[in-house]
């Protein structure tokens, strides 16, 4: 099966129709995951990580969103164009999502147990009976190491701490034994110690259940702990895609280098985090060439033309003219 990707996103593009015009949120994204792989998706805020991973499974309301092209295949099955009902089934059974802020992703006016049972029943398309669902829910709460599962089952979300709620959300997401887990910054909103606990738990569950995972984060450090591969996103495009070690030891894209430089270094005293000057380009009127050009120290005239993703080797792809043989020629011509 390893030759067949579990998730295969090709040329995926999405725009938002806004009052100010067409906002090109996602542009020509290619991303594929082998079964059992854990991919980290990183990039600064607003670059489209959430929109990409939600829209692929029909979770971004349209309007305002409009998918303008591409394909999303899960185990060889095309998801774009599926009916709402079919997509709901995919979300319930095959793809699980956990999100950033456990405080806001549970409904405040229903008991934790009610929400778990509802979700578990929906995941099975209503096949599971209430008491079966309750048994599954309690079992899952045990699995995510929530203390006192029976008591928390009857509690309301506001009676639980952030870490406990995130455990509940993980239990909910994984109850249907999905194949793919999308974790959208699952620890960002938590205290550092709790963060570590949740990351450990997730790593354990991913291994246990043989999950394939996309972990979204703007923190390269977090991603490095749980993932084997990293895809770097910038302004709605994937700009680099490589194994974790490669990203840290030999980053290819200037943007990735910038992200790494912004990481606090454990052995060097730093008074100030280096960050990349400048901001995201205006995606209402995106330039034709490299979207990073305005912030890039290596920008050259050739960067104003479309920059395709190219392979450096089997496992490493990058979208940058620095790796384009034509670049030297271009300079020689000039």
């Amino acid at each position: 099966m390893t030759d067949h990707p579990l998730l295969d996103i090709r040329d995926f593009s999405l725009v938002f129709d806004t009052f100010d015009g067409t906002y090109h949120a996602i542009d020509g994204v290619n991303l594929s995951l082998q079964p059992g792989e854990a991919l980290g998706l990183v990039g600064e805020t607003g670059c489209g990580k959430s929109v990409l991973t939600r829209a692929a499974f029909g979770l971004v309301p349209s309007p305002p969103a409009r998918i303008t092209g591409g394909s999303v295949q899960l185990q060889g099955r095309e998801l774009l164009g599926l009916s709402d009902r079919a997509l709901r089934q995919v979300r319930g059974r095959e793809v699980a999502m956990i999100f950033q802020d456990p405080m806001t992703y549970l409904n405040p006016v229903f008991r934790v147990g009610t929400q778990l049972v509802d979700a578990i029943r929906a995941q099975s398309g209503g096949q599971t009976k209430r008491d079966e669902a309750k048994a599954i829910a309690l079992d899952m709460l045990e699995k995510v190491q929530l203390p006192n599962p029976n008591r928390q089952f009857a509690a309301y979300p506001h009676e639980l701490s952030g870490g406990m709620r995130q455990r509940v959300l993980i239990a909910m997401a994984l109850a249907a034994k999905p194949k793919l887990l999308i974790a959208d910054e699952p620890t960002t909103a938590l205290d550092v110690t709790i963060q570590a606990q949740i990351l450990d738990l997730m790593a354990e569950l991913v291994a246990d259940m043989g999950l394939t995972m996309i972990m979204i984060s703007h923190d390269l450090g977090v991603v490095a702990q749980v993932c084997s591969r990293i895809a770097v996103m910038y302004a709605g495009k994937i700009v680099e895609d490589a194994p974790v070690a490669r990203i840290f030891d030999a980053p290819a894209h200037p943007y990735t280098k910038g992200l790494l430089a912004a990481l606090p270094h454990p052995f060097r005293r730093q008074d100030r985090l280096e960050s990349i000057p400048g901001t995201l380009p205006d995606l209402l009127h995106p330039p034709a060439g490299c979207l990073f050009a305005a912030r890039c120290p290596h920008a050259a005239p050739i960067c104003a033309k479309p920059v395709p993703m190219r392979r450096i080797d089997d496992s490493h792809r990058v979208a940058c003219t620095l790796y384009d043989p034509a670049r030297e020629k271009d300079r020689a011509d000039a």
Partner: peptide, 12 residues
């Protein structure tokens, strides 16, 4: 957000 989560669980 909790509506997004409910939809992500496949709730109708």
């Amino acid at each position: 957000d909790y509506v997004v989560n409910a939809r992500a669980q496949g709730i109708g």
